[in-house]
Amino acid sequence: KTVHVDGVEYRFNNPEEADKFVKRLVKEKNGNVEVRGDTYHVE
């Protein structure tokens, strides 16, 4: 899984860790998540 945040790319081998990371980011930023294939885009 890959997570894109503000143009920075984070790669996770463990999908659960990627999910936790995304949830935390969305809370912090009050942002939205767009999923494209295996990539999460957080804005």
Score class of each variant (00 low, 15 high):
H4I: 15
V8K: 10
D19Y: 14
V33G: 04
D19R: 12
E16W: 07
E34A: 10
T2S: 08
D38V: 06
E43K: 12
N13T: 11
V35E: 05
V5K: 00
F12V: 01
V22M: 12
E28A: 08
N14L: 04
E34M: 13
T39H: 12
V42W: 09
R11Y: 13
E9T: 11
R24D: 12
T2K: 04
N32T: 13
R24L: 11
V22L: 13
V26L: 14
V3N: 00
V3M: 02
K27T: 09
G7P: 01
Y40T: 09
Y10F: 06
R36Y: 11
N13E: 13
K20Y: 11
E17T: 03
L25M: 10
N14Q: 03
R36D: 10
D6F: 08
Y40I: 14
R36N: 08
D38H: 05
V22W: 09
N14W: 02
E9P: 04
D19T: 06
V5P: 00
K29H: 15
V26R: 10
V8S: 03
D6R: 04
H41N: 09
D6H: 04
D19P: 02
D38C: 13
N30H: 09
T39S: 12
H4S: 11
E34Y: 14
F21V: 01
G37S: 06
E16Q: 06
V42L: 07
R36M: 09
V5R: 01
G37W: 14
D6M: 05
K23Q: 13
E28G: 07
V3C: 13
V33L: 10
K1T: 14
V33S: 06
V8Q: 04
E43T: 15
V3D: 00
Y10W: 03
L25V: 05
E17D: 11
R36V: 11
N30P: 05
G31Q: 07
V26H: 06
V3W: 04
V26T: 07
V42N: 10
N32S: 12
E34L: 13
H41F: 15
P15K: 12
G31I: 13
F12H: 01
K23C: 15
N32W: 15
V33K: 04
K23H: 06
F21R: 00
P15S: 13
H41M: 12
V42F: 12
E16M: 05
N30I: 05
E17L: 02
R36C: 15
E9L: 12
V8F: 04
L25F: 07
V3T: 00
D6Q: 03
K20V: 10
V42R: 04
K1H: 13
H41Q: 10
K1A: 13
N30L: 06
Y10V: 02
N14S: 14
Y10N: 00
T2Y: 07
K29P: 04
E28R: 06
E28I: 09
V26N: 07
E28S: 10
P15R: 09
Y40M: 07
P15W: 12
V5G: 01
V26A: 10
V3R: 01
E16A: 07
V3Q: 01
E34V: 14
T2V: 13
H4Q: 09
T39I: 10
K29V: 11
V8N: 03
A18K: 03
D38W: 04
Y10C: 04
G37F: 12
A18F: 07
N13Q: 10
N32P: 04
Y40V: 12
K27V: 06
G31M: 14
H41E: 10
V5M: 03
K1N: 08
P15V: 09
D38N: 11
G31F: 14
F12T: 00
P15T: 10
V5N: 01
F21M: 01
A18V: 03
F21G: 02
V3G: 00
A18R: 05
R24G: 08
G7Q: 01
N14H: 03
H4V: 15
E28T: 07
K20A: 15
H4P: 01
G37D: 09
K27P: 02
L25A: 04
N13H: 06
V35M: 09
T39M: 08
K23L: 12
D6L: 03
N13M: 10
V8R: 07
Y40N: 05
V3L: 04
V5Y: 11
N30S: 09
Y40G: 05
D38K: 06
Y10I: 03
K20Q: 13
V42S: 06
V42E: 07
K20G: 07
A18I: 03
T39Q: 10
N14F: 03
G7H: 02
K20D: 14
F12E: 00
R36P: 07
V35R: 05
E43P: 08
R36A: 07
H41D: 09
F12Y: 00
G31D: 06
E28L: 12
Y40R: 03
N14C: 13
Y10R: 00
D19H: 09
G7C: 10
A18E: 03
N14A: 02
E17F: 00
N13D: 13
E16F: 06
K1I: 15
H41P: 06
D19W: 15
K23N: 09
E28W: 13
K29S: 13
E17I: 01
H4D: 02
R11G: 01
L25N: 02
V42H: 06
F21H: 01
E9Q: 08
D19A: 11
Y10E: 00
R24V: 04
F21I: 01
H41Y: 15
G37L: 09
D38A: 05
F12Q: 00
R24N: 09
N14E: 03
R36F: 10
T39D: 09
G37Q: 07
E17V: 01
D6W: 05
Y10S: 00
G31R: 07
T39E: 11
R11C: 12
L25W: 07
E28Y: 13
K23P: 02
E9K: 05
E43I: 14
E17G: 00
Y10T: 01
P15F: 09
E16T: 04
A18N: 00
V3F: 03
H41L: 13
K29L: 15
D19K: 10
P15Y: 09
G37A: 05
G7R: 00
V33Q: 03
K20R: 13
E28P: 04
H4W: 15
Y40L: 10
E17P: 00
N32L: 11
R36K: 10
V22I: 13
Y40K: 07
V22Q: 03
R36Q: 08
H4F: 15
V26C: 15
N32A: 09
N13P: 09
D6C: 15
D19G: 03
G7N: 03
R24A: 13
E17A: 04
V22E: 03
R24K: 12
V5H: 06
A18Q: 02
D6K: 03
G7M: 01
A18P: 01
V8H: 05
E43W: 15
T2W: 08
E9S: 07
E9M: 11
E34H: 11
K20P: 03
G7V: 02
K1E: 04
P15Q: 13
A18T: 01
V5A: 02
K1F: 15
E43Y: 15
K29I: 11
V35G: 04
V35N: 05
N32I: 14
N32K: 14
E16I: 05
T2I: 14
V26I: 13
E28C: 15
K27D: 11
V8Y: 05
A18G: 01
V33P: 05
N32G: 06
K23S: 12
V42M: 08
V8L: 05
Y40F: 11
R24S: 11
Y40W: 12
N32E: 06
V26P: 02
V22S: 02
V22R: 11
N30A: 07
D19C: 15
V8M: 06
G31P: 08
F12S: 02
H41T: 09
V42K: 07
F21D: 02
N13L: 10
R11N: 03
E16S: 04
K23E: 12
V22K: 05
D6S: 02
R36G: 06
G7D: 02
R24F: 09
N32Y: 14
K29C: 15
K27E: 11
G7T: 01
E28M: 10
V26M: 14
V5E: 01
P15E: 13
E34Q: 12
K1D: 02
R24I: 08
V42A: 08
V26S: 07
E34G: 05
K20I: 12
E34S: 12
A18D: 02
H41K: 09
K20C: 15
T39P: 06
V5I: 09
P15C: 08
V33W: 10
G37H: 08
D38G: 08
G31H: 11
E34K: 10
G31S: 09
V26D: 04
V33Y: 11
D38F: 06
G7F: 01
R24M: 11
D38P: 05
V26E: 08
E43A: 11
E9R: 08
V22G: 03
R36W: 08
V42P: 06
P15D: 10
D6V: 01
F21P: 00
N14V: 03
T39V: 11
N30R: 08
F12R: 00
K23D: 08
N13W: 04
V3A: 00
V3Y: 05
D19M: 13
D19I: 14
V33M: 06
G31K: 07
